[in-house]
Design a protein around this nucleic acid. Structure first.
Lengths: 344, 344
DNA sequence: CGTCGGAGATTAAGCGCTTAATCAGCAGGG
DNA sequence: CCCTGCTGATTAAGCGCTTAATCTCCGACG
């Protein structure tokens, strides 16, 4: 392994000079700089990131907490985060909590502040107390998808108006003429699904439509499948199903297929998020798109700001209020899974 | 931030003693040990991983190179890798190369050896020369999915008999009675797809069946969709389609649906890998399962061994031959997308 | 009673890099 | 000719942790 000192010796200068050249700091003469660069190239020198992290008192990585990378939304989001992070010179460590707060805490304890200088949190089912602890230890934390722009969570966050997303979905179905609509609501403890469902109910209310049945289900295709079957069994005359997420919505489409129902002829299905699969399913899923890339960008840039300011003003910056960024509004994306009702 | 020294002061001992307690090294008296542990708890001390990495001369992380985490196979694999790595105290940094060898090299240059002490490579379209460079710099590298058990790649690897996978798929279709079979072959430069296709052709040969048409396509649903349409247009009498991967196979099913063909009534479809989606599609996809979890376990444990031995025998261990682990054989998983041919 | 061995601690060096402080020249102004 | 002010470099301390080497007791053994 080539070290800074070896490069320095090879170039006939001191390590400090090499460091200055590499970081564009201090004053270095043109010829010396060139000699150093030559030596770097000749020896194939690569800085030792851990050593640099120690000396600088900061790490070049960000931690991204996700509940499970198996849910296809997270890889998509992670990709966007990684992209944003790379442009600011950060690597991303993806931490799977598996919905387990203890695993989450273990990750936070180990890598926050020592291997990563900032933490990005998605709907990972973490204990807020742990996040506050992390923050108080000096490592900035940003919530990537806060669901209620009007009710700050007490942590820096990027807010997405998920209530509106639910409302848009509901309105779309109502506009098409649906009145018997079943709802599949994610079962996670988090408020994400609640806000979406609220918006959906708001839309029904506004239109004077009946509230309809609700079934809770895990955020998976199979969860949605089972929920949809239960819903259709309870009320065979349902003409539409709203799911608070795309995955269960896809499951609902499968259920319809298995029950011999045509989508959207016999049953309309709508989800929320617009994951890749929504585009690729047959029929393609109508959904309410969340601006994933934008959210990732906002979250990373907010985190970067917090990191910078935490190094700037030694320690606390408590007087400032907790920052919140608001993403652009979710948008309805009409595809092939919804249509005018055709009562059975 | 609490440091080792602070804990030491608080416990009335020297930093060395604290370190010894924390690492279960050296000799420490019972009472002293307890005092140290109390101090650790009282101060909420967490070791600084970067500092530890520097002092130990090794890092607690592994790098996982993937072509794109957007392909659902990789998150599944990454999850298995992460699980295996965690059990050996490693974190995993997922590096997306986006199929770009230069991005891959950038990652290798930056984190191999400084932030991570080992590299796991999936089909990430990397330059083998870069991998050898990384290895020669002292960071062990393991190829996670080498496709030809009989032709070692010159790097440590876990081999999966992908030729056999293709053969199993072909044999299955032939056994059902298919004779007009189209093939969708991944277009990646890598040999992964070639080996699978070879196995498929071997099966046809053995049965004296005609070779059929081939269409190359990217490893996506849409790629498979387009390829299947092209295939069916060229030969409307095709009774089955074999794809070298599940994603294109799913795309082929969509194409069939759009062309009004019933799967498996009019067209049988089979893929390779057995990703989660294969189970969740309608009809569920028949495929040849690759032992993902086993491969991940083998790869991580091989990498760990290489890491240990690289620290053991100072530097080179060149005399030893390049190790290869062979995963258990791929297995046919019959689901609903294949059936006896029903000529149109 | 002198000495030896081992348990239980400490000392100190060093991992590779950063950076504030310092220093050596040297040109120009008084 | 001395002092000032630069530029271009060096010095040296330190980031938090590990670890080989060292030291200090103290009981046991001959």
């Amino acid at each position: 392994m080539t070290t800074l000192s070896e490069v320095a010796r090879h170039a006939g200068v001191t390590p400090a000079t090499v460091s200055n050249v590499l970081r564009n700091r201090g004053r270095v003469g043109a010829s010396t700089r060139q000699r150093v660069l030559d030596a770097v190239a000749a020896l194939g020198y690569r800085p030792h990131l851990a050593a640099r992290a120690l000396a600088e008192g900061r790490a070049p990585t960000l931690a991204l907490m996700v509940s499970s990378i198996a849910n296809p939304f997270y890889p998509e989001f992670a990709l966007a985060v990684e992209h944003a992070a790379r442009s600011s010179g950060h690597f991303v460590i993806i931490c799977n909590t598996n919905e387990d707060p203890l695993t989450g805490r273990a990750y936070l304890d180990q890598i926050a502040g020592t291997l990563s200088e900032g933490v990005l949190v998605t709907n990972a089912n973490l204990d807020f107390a742990d996040l506050h602890t992390t923050e108080s230890r000096g490592t900035p934390v940003v919530l990537c998808m806060w669901e209620r722009p009007n009710e700050p969570p007490g942590l820096p966050c990027v807010a997405v108006d998920f209530r509106l997303a639910g409302e848009l979905a509901g309105t779309h179905l109502l506009t098409l003429g649906h009145r018997r609509i079943g709802a599949i609501v994610g079962s996670k403890a988090s408020g994400i699904h609640a806000a979406r469902y609220e918006g959906f109910v708001d839309a029904l209310h506004a239109a004077g439509a009946p509230k309809g049945r609700v079934k809770h289900a895990p955020d998976t295709i199979q969860g949605g499948y089972a929920a949809a079957r239960a819903l259709l069994e309870a009320d065979p005359k349902l003409t539409a199903i709203f799911a608070t997420n795309d995955l269960p919505a896809l499951g609902a489409m499968h259920a319809a297929a298995d029950l011999g129902l045509n989508v959207p002829g016999d049953l309309s299905v709508i989800g929320i998020t617009d994951i890749q699969l929504a585009r690729e399913s047959r029929p393609a899923l109508t959904t309410v798109a969340v601006p994933t890339v934008e959210v990732a960008d906002l979250a990373v840039s907010l985190l970067r700001e917090l990191i910078e300011s935490s190094y700037g003003q030694a320690g606390h910056q408590s007087t400032a209020s907790v920052p919140m960024r608001i993403s652009s509004a979710p948008k309805l994306v009409v595809r092939a899974s919804t249509g005018v009702p055709h009562p059975r």
